[in-house]
Design a protein around this nucleic acid. Structure first.
Lengths: 266, 266
DNA sequence: ATCTGAATTGCGTAGTGCGCAACGAAAAAT
DNA sequence: ATTTTTCGTTGCGCACTACGCAATTCAGAT
């Protein structure tokens, strides 16, 4: 039997309003009334009234003089004020746990914070020897798999803006120390879909991480596994990196999915 | 006569849905259905159906197992994807122009970008000698009035996270070069409401800037005026700083205001 | 187990929001 | 410049949405 979807009635006009919001937010261009009407399959007048309601609330706005719609300051204000620190953790935690269990190694979730990667969640494996990197810890972007995954889409100019012109601090003998090398690394990560840390930050420690991307491609975080090099062997790379990539992909889909995400949490 | 407000009919349920969104976004705690019903002055069942519609779209979410609502990933995704670079400029430009005209000096609008302040808009005064600092330019946070205004709320720990432990680069003989000095400066800015740049970045140049705050107090940008020290005299400080502070305040209100913002742009 | 407070569902009706059509203004075409 | 077309905006009345009421279920506390 097909699972029963949503007996709770939709509030039609609210639903339509949200559709408008998403349409405007994902469009790079201002959106005209006609386009909205067509999108919703409703009369222009209906689209107009919906859009006006959104506009009065500040969720939409019209560029000076123009008639077409862009997002308004209310959206901006709301998203700025809100504490999003748990969002990724909430959405990703299940997946993180699954990853850690399937490989039986410690899995981390990280975001970019200035020049550092910030670990915002972790699931430890059952091992005597557990890796460092507790939740809340900051580590250099250029010297860790998580950090490099977060940087993957940046070009040389953007990297220089972040790191300035001073040489990068050396942590181990494999630490990347120049921007050009980092640029090459980033290109590689884009191609492969994952980043490796071969004891670049901490001796004897390996890590594989993949960027978490929204539908738009934007990188919003990274997920990865870390382990002592004695346990995380080179022959594990293919399997581990594949698992990490798929995990990142699933999280990205969870974030971008708008409807009917399963809520089997019990 | 009071200007006629909005003949265009509200879409009631959309309006209510947006109210819910704002309520949830501005609350630090998860919001229960009962609270929403009370807020909207509607029956619980109505609030329920609205909330469910928002939840299906991913705009709201319920923490594992709980029944109360928090913002969902759709909000997060939307606001991440959207290009907000023009938002502040759009909202603030009129005020920026007014400021520049009233003092007849160049006014700038800046935001924080990593370790730098980024000028995102400017209005030049009619003077032979105009200040540098074009739109798009990056300047150090610790050495400019705009930068310091943007840092005003940070404490020592946060400042160190941004600037690291290396001594700060010296630009002029008045440049702040230590974190403790910067901390003191920030405290002063919080108290006074504005920041000064006494030729700390560029010789012979003065600047006064104030942080732009949302209702929540969060700093989202800075506005200020710059001029050669020969024209921007010490006796101008009181008047200029007051003008800058009030301008910043007005912009903050524009950003936080949700309804009926005047649209007299002609 | 019982009780209490909440969330959730069903249902009939009031009222909202819809489409239609007309108007006005601005853009496109001639 | 004039006509034509397109798009945004407003008025109106019917239809159906979404509301409140009340009954039901669920969860937690006693």
């Amino acid at each position: 039997m097909p699972k029963k979807v949503a007996q709770v009635p939709f509030i039609q006009s609210l639903d339509r309003g949200l559709t408008i919001l998403q349409a405007v937010a994902t469009s790079t261009q201002p959106v005209t009334l006609g386009e909205l009407a067509e999108l919703l399959r409703v009369d222009r007048s209906s689209a107009f009234r919906l859009a006006q309601t959104l506009r009065r609330r500040g969720f939409l706005s019209t560029p000076a003089g123009r008639k077409d719609y862009i997002l308004g300051s209310a959206m901006w204000t709301l998203s700025r004020q809100y504490d999003w620190s748990n969002m990724l953790v909430r959405v990703a935690h299940q997946e993180l746990k699954a990853l850690a269990n399937s490989l039986n190694e410690t899995a981390h979730l990280a975001i970019r914070e200035g020049r550092n990667a910030l670990f915002i969640d972790s699931v430890h494996a059952r091992h005597v020897l557990v890796v460092a990197g507790q939740t809340g810890e900051l580590v250099p972007l250029y010297a860790t798999a998580h950090g490099k995954a977060l940087l993957a889409d940046l070009d040389e100019k953007e990297l220089r803006t972040i790191f300035g012109s001073e040489p990068l601090q050396k942590f181990t003998k494999t630490t990347i120390r120049t921007i050009p090398a980092l640029v090459r690394e980033c290109v590689g990560i884009q191609e492969r879909g994952y980043a490796l840390d071969e004891a670049e930050f901490m001796e004897g420690m390996r890590c594989a991480a993949a960027p978490i991307r929204l539908n738009s491609g934007m990188i919003v975080g990274s997920i990865g596994i870390s382990a002592p090099a004695s346990r995380f062997l080179k022959e594990h790379y293919p399997a581990h990196s594949k698992a990490v990539i798929q995990c990142a992909k699933r999280i990205g889909q969870l974030l971008s999915a708008s409807e009917e995400i399963a809520e089997q949490s019990a």
